[in-house]
Simulated scan of single mutants.
Amino acid sequence: MIAISSGIEIAEQELEWQFIRASGAGGQHVNKVSTAAQLIFDIRASSLPAFYKNRLLARADHRITPSGKIIIKCQQSRSQEFNRQQALLQFIELVQAAGVVAKKRYATKPSYGSQQKRLDSKKKRGSTKQLRQTKADS
């Protein structure tokens, strides 16, 4: 079981792993070992709560496909185990971020001081405008 956050766990069987050769520049002496780890997770078929599923499916992220799968590829190191751990960390962070709900902000009444400041600046702008107008008229 992989703990995502308090009370939410995912079974190891829900994660599909593929180890592929890292893409990128190479030459004659390229290491032919499959080092890049690719994690595939089906959101719709998972045991996640409906709230997390809906938030993940609605999220705009390049790692989430339109068919509802999360695909995370990690090729930071030549070690398969390290790349696997990094992909798993990225997956956990993605699911945790989907569970965070933005704080609702309520409209507040402006303070007396800010209202006075606003009125003063309005009066000042009005008086300078009048001065310009009288100078232009004369």
Results as ranks from 00 to 15, higher is better:
I70A: 07
D61K: 01
D42T: 07
R55G: 00
I70H: 04
S79P: 03
I64Y: 00
C74T: 15
S79Q: 12
L88G: 07
I43R: 01
D42P: 01
Q76K: 12
L89F: 11
P49H: 05
I43S: 03
I71V: 14
L88A: 09
R84T: 11
S47A: 10
R44F: 05
E81Y: 13
R55L: 02
I71M: 14
L56E: 00
Q85M: 11
I43L: 08
A50T: 10
S47Q: 10
A50C: 10
I43F: 09
S47K: 11
A50E: 10
Y52K: 06
L56R: 00
K53I: 12
S77R: 04
A60H: 08
L48S: 05
I70R: 04
L88T: 08
I43G: 02
L88S: 15
N54Y: 06
T65H: 02
A50M: 12
L57K: 01
F91L: 15
P66N: 11
I70T: 06
S67N: 14
S77F: 05
A50H: 11
Q80E: 15
S67Q: 13
L57C: 04
A60G: 00
H62C: 03
I92C: 12
Y52T: 06
F82G: 00
Q80S: 10
L88M: 10
K53E: 10
N83K: 14
N83E: 08
I43W: 06
L88V: 10
C74Y: 01
I64A: 00
A87V: 13
L89I: 15
R59K: 15
R78M: 10
L57T: 03
D42S: 13
K53V: 14
S79L: 13
S67E: 11
H62A: 11
R84A: 15
R55K: 15
C74Q: 11
Q85W: 06
I43Y: 06
A50G: 07
G68E: 05
S79F: 09
T65R: 01
Q86K: 14
Q76Y: 12
Q86P: 03
Q75T: 02
I92Y: 10
K69E: 13
S77K: 02
S79W: 08
Q75S: 12
H62I: 04
L89G: 08
I64M: 01
F91T: 04
I71S: 05
G68M: 08
I92N: 06
R59L: 08
S79N: 09
D42Y: 03
D61M: 02
R84S: 07
N54A: 14
